[in-house]
Amino acid sequence: MGLTLNHFLVLGALLFCIGLYGALAKRNAIAVLMGIEIMLNAVNVTMVGFSFFNKVKPYSTYLTGQIFAIFIITVAAAEAAVALAMIISIYRKRSTVDVGEINMMKW
């Protein structure tokens, strides 16, 4: 039984929904951020799987999936830096990281 694209797509989908649960259900803002990182990794697994199993000519020649994954990693690193700076800044003002208590923009 060889590996097919479906194996990697199902793996990516499982990781994505676990990360979605973490991002939706957690009260700690850093745990929400970790859920988002899991979701981005799931998308990367899917992209690299598409790149490996792709047979459509220009995209398989130019490794479009892997290039997409590299840009996703870049944006994810920037997102993690900005989000953690925001969390620390909010903690300094409100001394909490509970996303249920950060409601100053709610009306």
């Binding site: 259900a25 009260r27 990281v97």
Partner: peptide, 15 residues
């Protein structure tokens, strides 16, 4: 850098 003691018993609770 953040303290999570005001989140209740565990430091990683569900809402």
């Amino acid at each position: 850098l953040t303290r999570t003691s005001n989140l209740g018993g565990s430091s990683n609770p569900n809402n």
